[in-house]
Amino acid sequence: MTEFDRDAIQARLTTCTSKEATFKELVSLSKQLERLSDADKTDEHKVKGCESAVWLIEQQDNGICTFQADSDAKLMRGVLVVILSLANGRSKAELQAMDLAAELSQFNLSSYLTSSRTNGILGILKQIQA
């Protein structure tokens, strides 16, 4: 399990001064994501409402949640790294108390997050809190 450093990721994305740089950074972040095996990419793990395919798997250990996620689209994998950096290592209660969408908006992703993408991502956040 890779631990993602939220602050480092935020620093990397918020210092991007152009959209090109943001896209490059997302591509670079995407490489940190551990890919799921095909066996794990089941319909049950698939998040509904995303434009690209997204799978999310949750594990709980002593009340602490760990999520694994994958997508067939690279930029989405970059965003998943951002999301996992926010969500992993917290309890369900902690996650439910957070405004994950507001947290995500601090990562300077507006050039990527079109309205239809945002809907899909809200679906992922909802599932993390469920």
């Binding site: 959209k19 434009e51 690209s52 067939d72």
Partner: peptide, 14 residues
């Protein structure tokens, strides 16, 4: 090797 949605996102950003 590149998702069309990713290409679309980049084109849209431009």
């Amino acid at each position: 090797g590149i998702h069309t949605l990713d290409l679309n996102s980049y084109l849209d950003s431009q």
